[in-house]
Nucleic acid binder design. Sequence first.
DNA 1: TCATAATCTACAGTCAACGTAAGGTGATGA
DNA 2: TCATCACCTTACGTTGACTGTAGATTATGA
Lengths: 129, 129
Amino acid sequence: MSKMQIGELAARTGLSQRTIHFYEEKRLISPSEREGRGYRYYDEQTLRRLEKISALKEIGLSLDEIAGVIDLYFQDETGIMGKRRVLEILQGHLKGTEARIVSLQGFRKDTKASIKKLEGLIAKAEGRG
Amino acid sequence: MSKMQIGELAARTGLSQRTIHFYEEKRLISPSEREGRGYRYYDEQTLRRLEKISALKEIGLSLDEIAGVIDLYFQDETGIMGKRRVLEILQGHLKGTEARIVSLQGFRKDTKASIKKLEGLIAKAEGRG
DNA sequence: TCATAATCTACAGTCAACGTAAGGTGATGA
DNA sequence: TCATCACCTTACGTTGACTGTAGATTATGA
């Protein structure tokens, strides 16, 4: 269970094997082990890492940006300075996410207004017809 | 006011002139006029159109997808069938937007939890130090 | 009239994030 | 023995969304 090959990892994350290779090139992940015949082996940690990467992509970060922060999510920061730094990054993500949400809510409002107006027009046209 | 050249349009939308040309190639917009064999002239309608395009990009539509629906936002649909069609599209956008919001809210929740945990650790470390 | 500014067309280049294909290795089961 | 499988590396291709730039044309003000 704990050790899996790339095929299983791909299946469980929904990513393609190529994408996983690509993420390794970009230093977003690395296999936990590379035994005899060259196969990559991954653990659950990498699985969670990939999930976090997808989540960060969802909020609009580029892979480069993700590469710059992904470790912060998974290293056990011992020093208090490290913890503060991680905290700052997370707070930045939170802010970005909230801005994004607000912007989408604005769009939602506009769209709802358009819909309502259009429904009115349709109702009127039907009533008259 | 009503008639402007590409420079002004670019300034007012925040897009580059090159991008506006590009959007024209992609049939997302077109100049209202092309007098004297040369310069493009735009009206306020195009300005609003570009703003809508940006909004649709914001919610994750590709330029191709936008090209497929942008007219619906600006044509005065006369027939009731047309109106229904526009309504459907808008409802689709609304659904997509709401899904997007929910997903971001999930991420926000996770991030907040991480922050809280981290703040706890920092407080503990400080209290002990 | 002439400099300068604004715009034009057309083609090439870039960058991210993969996709795809070719050719090769070691393990496994019929 | 041999086909199949799961993976490997290397490398070129693709798509989307721009961006740069050269060289020509058009407009404007002193």
